[in-house]
Design a protein around this nucleic acid. Structure first.
Length: 279
DNA sequence: AACCAACACAACCGCTGTGTC
DNA sequence: AGACACAGCGGTTGTGTTGGT
């Protein structure tokens, strides 16, 4: 079959395509996305190219690296403040994209929604959910929650207790919800208001910068410190504090610290000869 | 070993904002 | 002012991986 010149490729990107895209950015900068197709460089839309660049190929991305406790905290706090402004939130997380933040948030939402739904229908399997809730907090390395959870589980391991508002710090938001079999949560209904997770005590070590930022997060006006910041402004990496991020960078995570199978293109190497002011 | 559910991540789609002519 | 193209954003979906049974 001929006549597929105009066909637009979709789906996963190949290493060759990445290379072409990187070369394009190298030549023209991260713009003119539509020209990658009009020039016949790739059979991808400019939109697709831009997305690939922003989410995967851009330098200093923490690809394949789980969100740290600090990052989780910031996402939770900023989501409460800005709503689902993922791009904006991402500007406060060096190396993270809006897609990362969005994915992180939605999977966390889903997990919590599922747990709450399980808790609404008491059954023997709920002990499993209890375990999952514990894991959520344990993976957050929140020792205080962990201690509370363990205390609770040793005394009364039934699920209704698991979602004790006091326990989870859901407060009024949670206690207003009516959990019945007739009225289970649906995901769309569940705009979960995350608990005000207490900041870590002495057992977690934060860099001075982190502590400073965490302190400012308590301040409703802390954004003023940064002035009128918006995502488009910050999309220029030159303005991002990547060299001196708010937090000690997890360098092992930068650009795929977690070995990502067989990506043959080493972006870091490819960018070595980029003009330093390009990003 | 096979199956399944949950999860993480990549990519697409539709919409909106912005700049240019 | 209006039309158009492009860039960017948020929501959603698809897919591969992982862990439990």
């Amino acid at each position: 079959m001929d006549g597929k010149r105009e066909e637009i490729r979709k789906g996963p990107w190949k290493a060759e395509e990445d290379e072409v895209l990187i070369n394009h950015v190298k030549q023209y900068g991260p713009r003119d996305w539509s020209s990658i197709r009009s020039k016949g460089l790739l059979q991808r839309t400019g939109k697709s190219g831009r997305l690939r660049w922003v989410n995967k190929l851009r330098p200093n991305l923490k690809n394949g690296c789980k969100f740290s406790l600090e990052e989780e905290r910031i996402v939770i706090e900023l989501q409460a403040q800005f709503g689902n402004k993922w791009a904006r939130i991402a500007t406060y997380l060096p190396g993270r994209t809006d897609n990362d933040v969005k994915n992180f948030w939605s999977s966390r939402q889903k997990r919590l929604a599922r747990i709450l739904q399980n808790s609404a229908t008491p059954s023997p399997s709920n002990s499993k959910s209890h375990k999952v809730v514990k894991e959520i907090f344990e993976t957050s390395e929140d020792q205080k929650f962990k201690a509370i959870m363990e205390e609770e589980s040793s005394s009364k391991a039934q699920l209704p207790d698991m979602v004790n508002p006091k326990l989870l710090h859901f407060g009024a938001n949670y206690s207003d919800l009516q959990l019945t079999e007739d009225n289970p949560y649906t995901e769309s209904q569940l705009q979960i208001h995350f608990p005000q997770i207490p900041y870590p005590q002495q057992d977690l070590t934060f860099s001075p910068e982190s502590q400073e930022l965490l302190a400012t997060l308590e301040d409703p006006y802390f954004l003023d410190v940064f002035g009128p910041v918006d995502a488009p402004e910050l999309s220029n990496e030159a303005q991002l504090p990547v060299e001196q991020p708010f937090f000690k960078p997890e360098t092992s995570c930068m650009n795929g610290g977690k070995e990502r199978s067989d990506k043959s293109v080493n972006s870091e190497a490819l960018f070595e000869d980029f003009p330093t002011d390009m990003f």
